[in-house]
Design a protein around this nucleic acid. Sequence first.
DNA 1: ACTATAGTTACCCTCATGGATAACAATAGC
DNA 2: GCTATTGTTATCCATGAGGGTAACTATAGT
Lengths: 112, 112
Amino acid sequence: MDNNSPNLDTVFLAFADPTRRAVLRQLGQGPASVSDLSAPFDMALPPFMKHIRTLENAGLIITRKEGRVRTCEINPARYAEVEQWLIDQRKGWASRYQKLDALLETLKGQTT
Amino acid sequence: MDNNSPNLDTVFLAFADPTRRAVLRQLGQGPASVSDLSAPFDMALPPFMKHIRTLENAGLIITRKEGRVRTCEINPARYAEVEQWLIDQRKGWASRYQKLDALLETLKGQTT
DNA sequence: ACTATAGTTACCCTCATGGATAACAATAGC
DNA sequence: GCTATTGTTATCCATGAGGGTAACTATAGT
């Protein structure tokens, strides 16, 4: 879990876009084709495909083409790595900021 | 915790750079001045300051100037929000990917 | 075979990002 | 008060990211 990992660069960059986050959320409901995924967005297919590629290059989704349809699916393992990175970060200052755990619990409780 | 939040854009973008991640890790050890933080990097101060501003704008750090020294400190609350976003994402597919919890446990066990 | 569908490829444009310099405050130290 | 230290402001530059068109390929469907 190196801090200098280009993996983290690409993953966090992939997260740093509302369209891609929405796609990820949608894929949470199950696999979907590219055009199904693109439907909610007022965006041409080519730029939308770039988002898909970005997510795939980041390892956050897996895609495969069957016939003329490309199906996208979420890749849980990569999420786990990211969460682990955040946990590692938190370890660093956890001892000095004991209040955080309480704060996290508060946030978990909210539906917001 | 809106998916379309510009907060998430800026936070994830802030994470998507190795220099900034290293700064955050260093700040985990405690507050530090800008020049102390910049020391490990082969980079001029002005561009380094931009990283600091990026982190501050993302709400990941808090800075204040005393005399001529600007001291930076980590802001745990923002981390909590990001972790919460990831947890929310995971909720979506948790039921369909029961194996993930096991996977997460595996990763937690590793020191890598 | 023809046509509609689903992606793909190849460009183009604009703006943000990550880096660099040069020159300028502003505060400590002596 | 001079000087070194610590940031800051103002530009500049190259690259990449996010968007768009146009034109093409490839597979279903009939």
